[in-house]
Computed example of a mutant assay.
Amino acid sequence: MKKNIAIIAGGDSSEIVVSLKSAEGLYSFIDKEKYNVYIALVKKDEWVVKLAENEYSLIDKNDFSFLQNGKKVQVDFAYITIHGTPGEDGRLQGYFDLIGLPYSSCSLLTSAITFNKFVCNNYLKNFGVRVADSIRLFAGEQMTEEAIVQRLGLPVFIKPNDGGSSFGVTKVKTESQIRPAIAKAFAEGKEVIIEKYMEGTEVTCGCYKTKKGKEVVFPLTEVVTENEFFDFDAKYNGQSDEITPARLPEALTKKIQQQTSRIYDLLGAKGLIRVDYIILADNEPYMLEVNTVPGMTVASFIPQQVRAAGLDIQEVMSDLIENELN
């Protein structure tokens, strides 16, 4: 009997547009011969499953079931692809833990840690992972432009501490740009992180592991853009070149892959994660952030890396699902 798989999309942030694209990608990747696949839209005031074009069924929040043709459908596995809250910060994971529904991504604790860039970076820094120097600001907290520049120099990146997909991110080159950039970041989140600028080659690496001891670390993707940084247009509107595998020496590639595997274990991750890095002129990789709900559109990094590794994306999806069901 086929298991029922729900791809969980939506969310309550600006990243909903990316989430919906990822849901479409995942729907195309998951084996329909093996599973019944549905897309569920989860927003603050609406939890529904899409049955057909313009046809939806309400989700029963007691057990995440829904009705189809008058019959109750019980979901067996949730593939979370909400970028931002509540799918990437641990809230949905906690709910699924409470009702006993297996899901794709990291645990509540790991998701909460990685969603908060400042907390995650400083946690991993304790284990020798190189990260950018940074400052965290809470709403209402004041810090002078002079103090920020004295601590981090210029340029700096100012962005939401609890968001992604480059919403609310500004590369700041002058003191006069600091206040507007902080306000822009606060419009997208409750905390702001100000990071020291690092110039180098940006790469990203996907990874997953299973309970049976299988470890898959994908080829690296190199990101090249003429934009000021890897912003929303660079990510989703074709304003970048994404080269997989990255044009790096083999030894450096292996070093970053090993670092990715180590970060996976240090965080107690599960499911599929992606770690972003910048390689400085001395060939040292610095971690930028950990993404526990990576984008899964057809053009996203992970599908690119799966193809470059010579793997079948459908088999990878089955691997991730079966790991949690068995």
Rank of each mutant, 00 (worst) to 15 (best):
E202C: 08
H83W: 06
S166V: 07
T210Q: 11
L109Y: 14
G94T: 08
F29I: 04
D89C: 10
D233R: 15
Q305V: 08
G128A: 09
E315K: 10
S104Y: 04
I243V: 14
G153V: 03
F66L: 04
V42I: 14
L51D: 14
I302E: 07
Y38V: 12
V216P: 09
L248M: 06
F301S: 03
A9E: 15
T204H: 03
Q150R: 09
S22A: 10
N326W: 05
E24D: 15
A147R: 08
N227L: 09
A187M: 05
E175Y: 01
T253K: 10
D133S: 13
V75T: 14
N161M: 05
K50L: 05
E141G: 10
I321S: 11
E322G: 03
A309K: 15
P303R: 12
I256Y: 04
N54F: 09
M198E: 02
T260R: 13
K171C: 07
Y277L: 02
L320K: 07
N326V: 06
Y56R: 09
E145F: 02
I321T: 10
D312F: 04
G295E: 04
V172A: 02
V306S: 03
Y236K: 10
V18F: 03
G25I: 00
K159H: 05
Y79F: 15
N122Q: 13
V293L: 13
E250L: 13
K255Y: 00
W47G: 09
I16T: 10
G168E: 04
A187K: 00
